[in-house]
Design a binder for these strands. Structure first.
Length: 1036
RNA sequence: GGGUUCAUAGCUCAGUUGGUUAGAGCGCUUGCUUGACAUGCAAGAGGUCGUUAGUUCGAGUCUAAUUGGACCCACCA
């Protein structure tokens, strides 16, 4: 019943059919060029958010485009186990549901629950991606923690270790006290916070010899972490700081702890900051750790893994770090060691998962030695083996990669790939191997324990481009699809993932993982804020799909955004996209109706009124019900069906239809009655898109004729009716067998139709669009491709061409009609192909309803993407036709300025200045598109005499309309003045340029010639405008 | 501290390598239910392209400075 676009009725069904037909499958195929994209695996327990929607819409667009371009296009889907994120969620759920902690259930119990959780929610995001229309090869769906990926992870870990690229050591790591695990540098987010700088006196140990800074009983240090002073093992000063020069080498008594610590000189210290003296706490600060190493200082760790103070903190043991800080400061104050507290802002690291303040702590962890791995990864980007776009991300990447530090890959978690490292309980030997050894290779002992830790999630993600293709086995997939072509991802995981894939690919495969990275921006809310759960400003893409359809959502995310830029997203965007889908929908309806109309003209009056019901609607979800043709029933999906409502014109039925129709007409007269409109809509019959129906009323009524006029051929009057019983019937509605060639369209029967000016214009525009859209898509610039296709479909095909073909379609010349319809079909189908990668569902749904030409596949997704066809570019004709459009716009403008309402059809008088043949040929267009009545050509440049007129001046012709009493002299004068001023301004500009010797000397000839031509044109126009002003008895 | 990026119509944004009168969507004004579409059609208003200086015959586009916003990186206690 819906005459409007209603995606919920067909998207699911179409997707199921695509799956069923295995259109998404990709496999090594020597006859085709490979194309591969690896989906950034979303978290297995995650839900689709707008970022995913954007990212995957773009990938799908690219992969569909490449598929249509003839590539063996693989889009590899998968999910990520998201070690820390999932572990946190599972622990939370466990606590909420069962009141249990990880410690309560133990490793096995916890993993059981985590796998159960994965089983329960793991498919959710996949189903959500399907709703978006993603054409992934789902048969290959991978999970970063499934068996093949585990094999790849173990293989890489063992080889890294044996290559000396992996080591275990005590180093300062970023420790999250809430997650109780180490995390990598990339996982720390720095935030500027208001804090304090505590100045603390450390007494100098009296050695009995007061000299130099003899009065120095104390040295004052400034710190942001007073609680860590309990772990201090030195105080450092700058070697060239005169204030402290004589104290270097002396000993201090560490307050509260009463330990002796040395004063050391280290270049790291900035004498200008604070007091110029730094307390050194190697166990709790990365810089101090390094200083400690330089000066052989002991490392005293005073904190537990959970952020509480340990026994080394003496009296403060057991306190949390926050409580310890207060207690330490209070104690210092009480004992007179606190000098002052300054306000201070500093950067504090926070865990990117839980947000708690990161504690730098010395810990024994596994590290990937980055220096050697990074070098080729730097080179690959430098020499563009991997191209990052937009280009600015190359700088970011290179800066990071050149300064990268060793990567801490061990995590004190359970959910993840357990590290394949084992320790002999007897001799302590460390063994790294593919499987747990039965006995220690060193001492033969059997008490072998596996490392309890798991690997960083990103360790397995880094292998994604090849682990998904079967690595470490040498599979045909790996040989065929690797390196992949493009990675599409948001720029916020450039370090986490992109950079690590590059060096992992180079290390493990000897080749980069992808040739190109197309970064997307972030989807923000209308105010420009990141969408987040805590802010509650997120938009649920699934709700948008429910309401507007997946195509609308995709289009709204892709259209008009520059690659890599953030976007502000509000629901209005989707509404606008939905309107566009509706527009295309209705363009297709127009096509179907136009055929109906064409057949109509060959019917008797009675038949015509019956057939009028078919001017109406497609039903997406419902089968044909009300259409008179419904009884015929047997439509074939694979073949275009020509339906003939007139075939079974039972008198009763006919009468009813006519009655309905006239009721509709009566309603129509009532302008304000919306309800009536709706009723009227119902009076119109229905097409079902799911069962393509092409109306052919003439089948039985037309006498078989031997002599074939174009029109008859077009109407299919001498053709067989196809149906399911006759599947091999090669009948195609013959107009669609027309081959478009230079200047004409020729049918199989050798009938020809000369392309109209409008045809040539739209075909030229179509090809221009094909060229531009393809260029953008080749560069993965879907946003710009969208804009180009949108402009073509709405601004040219719908706003102009469909209006332009109406005179031909409603005329009595069957040849004109058929030809126009053939061209319209051709352009419409090309438009669907152009748009398909962006809006796959609606294009498919419409495609199925359209008659097929030889070679047209049943699904638009398997059609070839349109290619630029020089034969169908009529540059000169199109440019001349643009002048006709200019004339039309001029007349419309004139009418609007004169307040001639659109339902008035004034007579038009045309004084043609050039291209008269063309203008005469285009007269039907001009009349229709300017809502004019009769149109006459006149010979007098001053317009028709005897009555008052108003004129619009254009390059081709001047058009007059009677204005008589309508005219408001003042308004008319103002209108003409405005045009005169406009012309004068342009002339001035042009002539200014032309008078400039530099311009003439340096500008390209074409540019100069264009300026000259323009100035001449405007001079003519100016003269005419002045003349018409004069005729009104007005002056400037 | 280093770096990147943005600034164009009331709002959100396009604007390829410098070259017609700087575009679109939404919003606004006016007219219109016109045989595809009121989820629409037609017409219109609205911009000295953040500021300044430069390069150039010519700058929204290139250069430098400047103002304001966003982001990234970095060990300043």
């Amino acid at each position: 019943m819906e005459k409007n676009y209603g995606p919920s009725g067909f998207e699911g069904k179409i997707y199921a059919e695509w799956l069923d037909k295995k259109y998404f499958r990709a496999a090594p195929n020597p006859d085709k060029k490979p194309f591969a994209i690896m989906m950034p695996p979303p978290n297995v327990t995650g839900q689709l958010h707008m970022g995913h929607a954007l990212n995957n819409a773009l990938q799908d667009c690219i992969v569909r485009y490449k598929r249509m371009r003839g590539f063996e296009a693989l889009w590899m889907p998968g999910t990520d186990h998201a070690s820390i994120a999932t572990e946190v969620k599972v622990a939370e759920k466990m606590r909420a549901d069962e009141g249990l902690t990880k410690a309560d259930v133990g490793r096995e119990g916890f993993l059981e629950r985590a796998w159960a959780w994965t089983a329960q929610y793991g498919g959710r995001i996949v189903e959500q991606l399907k709703r978006l229309g993603c054409s992934c090869d789902w048969d290959r769906l991978a999970f970063t923690m499934d068996a093949p990926r585990a094999k790849a992870v173990t293989d890489v870990f063992v080889r890294l270790y044996r290559d000396g690229r992996l080591y275990k050591g005590d180093r300062i790591v970023n420790w999250c006290v809430a997650c109780k695990t180490a995390i990598s540098d990339a996982e720390v987010e720095y935030e500027t916070r208001q804090s304090s700088l505590w100045h603390i006196k450390y007494p100098v140990k009296n050695d009995g010899r007061g000299q130099g800074a003899e009065k120095a009983e104390y040295i004052t240090v400034a710190t942001t972490r007073p609680e860590t002073m309990l772990g201090d093992t030195a105080v450092a000063v700058s070697p060239d700081d005169k204030r402290y020069r004589d104290l270097i080498g002396k000993t201090l008594i560490l307050p509260l702890a009463n330990r002796e610590i040395p004063i050391v000189a280290d270049a790291y210290v900035d004498k200008a900051f604070g007091t110029g003296a730094v307390k050194v706490t190697p166990a709790h600060d990365p810089n101090d750790f390094e200083m400690g190493a330089r000066h052989n200082l002991p490392v005293i760790r005073v904190m537990n893994d959970d952020g509480t103070m340990n026994e080394r903190a003496g009296a403060f043991a057991g306190l949390t770090r926050e409580a310890a800080r207060e207690a330490v400061v209070a104690a210092l104050k009480e004992r007179g060691f606190l000098v002052k507290i300054q306000k201070h802002t500093h950067n504090a690291g926070h865990c990117y998962r839980c947000g708690s303040v990161i504690e730098p702590i010395v810990s024994r962890q596994w590290f990937v030695r980055m220096k050697e791995l990074a070098a080729p990864a730097v080179k690959a980007v430098e020499d563009k083996t991997v191209k990052l776009t937009p280009k600015r991300f190359e700088k970011i990447y290179l800066h990071w990669m050149r300064n990268v530090k060793d990567w801490c890959v061990s995590r004190q978690l359970w959910w993840g790939h357990r590290i394949p490292a084992y320790t002999c309980g007897e001799c302590g030997e460390l063994i790294v191997d593919y499987a747990k050894p039965d006995t220690c290779p060193k001492c033969g002992g059997a008490a072998i324990e596996q490392d309890p830790d798991v690997l960083d999630t990103w360790f397995s993600s880094a292998l994604w481009p090849f682990s998904t293709l079967g690595f470490p086995d040498k599979t045909p997939e790996l040989a065929y699809f690797y390196p992949t072509d493009v990675l599409v991802t948001a720029y916020d995981i450039i370090f986490f993932w992109v950079a690590r894939m590059v060096f992992s690919g180079l290390y493990n495969m000897g080749e980069v993982p992808f040739k190109r990275v197309a970064f997307t921006g972030l989807v923000r809310d209308v105010q420009g804020r990141k969408m987040s759960k805590s802010l509650g400003n997120g938009i649920d893409p699934l709700e948008l799909i429910d309401k507007y359809g997946a195509d609308s959502l995709r289009f709204s995310l892709l259209n008009g955004t520059a690659a890599g830029g953030d976007m502000r997203f509000g629901p209005e965007r989707v509404v606008s996209a939905r309107n566009f889908m509706n527009k295309i929908w209705n363009a297709a309806r127009f096509f179907h109706n136009a055929q109906c109309t064409m057949h109509n003209s060959q019917l008797s009056v009675g038949e015509r009124s019956d057939n009028a019901e078919c001017n109406g609607h497609f039903s997406l979800s419902e089968p044909v019900t009300d259409c008179p043709s419904k009884e015929r029933g047997h439509f074939s999906l694979s073949q275009p069906v020509i339906d003939c409502p007139s075939k079974e014109n039972s008198p009763a039925k006919k009468e009813k239809s006519v009655g309905e129709q006239s009721a509709g007409k009566a309603c129509r007269a009532d302008k304000d009655n919306a309800e009536c409109r709706m009723q009227n809509a119902e009076c119109n019959g229905h097409f079902s898109l799911s069962q393509p129906v092409i109306d052919c009323p003439s089948k039985e009524n037309s006498p078989a004729k031997k002599e074939k006029s174009v029109g008859e051929v077009l109407s299919g009057s001498n053709s067989q009716m196809p149906n399911e019983k006759d599947p091999d019937n090669a009948f195609q509605f013959s107009i669609f067998n027309f081959q478009l060639s230079d200047k004409e369209c020729r049918s199989e029967q050798n009938e020809t139709y000369k392309l109209s000016p409008a045809d040539k214009w739209i075909l030229t525009r179509l090809n221009d669009t094909v060229k531009r859209a393809s260029a953008f898509l080749d560069n993965y610039d879907a946003g710009l491709a969208c804009a180009v296709i949108y402009d073509f479909i709405w601004g040219e095909l719908c706003d102009w061409y469909i209006e332009l073909v109406k005179p031909a379609l409603y005329s009595d010349d069957a040849g004109e009609k058929g030809g126009a319809l053939a061209v319209l079909a051709r352009v419409l189908k090309s438009a669907l192909k152009l748009l398909h990668p962006i809006a796959p569902f609606v294009t498919e749904e419409i495609w199925r309803s359209l008659p097929k030409a030889p070679g047209d596949p049943e699904s638009v997704m398997t059609a070839a993407y349109p290619e630029y066809d020089k034969k169908l570019v009529f540059r000169g004709d199109a440019e001349r036709f643009d002048k006709v459009r200019e004339l039309i716009r001029g007349v419309r403008n004139l009418r609007a300025e004169l307040n001639v309402p659109q339902n008035k059809r004034p007579r038009l008088f045309i004084f043609c200045k050039k291209e008269e043949k063309l203008v005469r040929r285009c007269l039907p267009y001009i009349r229709t598109l300017t809502f004019s009545g009769e149109a006459d050509f006149i010979a007098d440049a001053a317009g028709p005499q005897g009555r008052r007129t108003s004129v619009c001046v254009s390059d081709l012709a001047d058009a007059y309309i009677y204005t008589d009493e309508l005219i408001d002299l003042e308004k008319e004068s103002a209108r003409l003045q405005k045009e005169i001023e406009n012309a004068e301004r342009e002339i001035k500009r042009c002539e200014g340029k032309l008078a400039d010797k530099g311009f003439i000397a340096n500008a390209p000839k074409a540019v100069a010639a264009a300026e000259k031509e323009k100035s001449e044109r405007y001079r003519v126009r100016l003269a005419e405008l002045r003349a018409s002003l004069a005729r009104l008895g007005l002056r400037e």
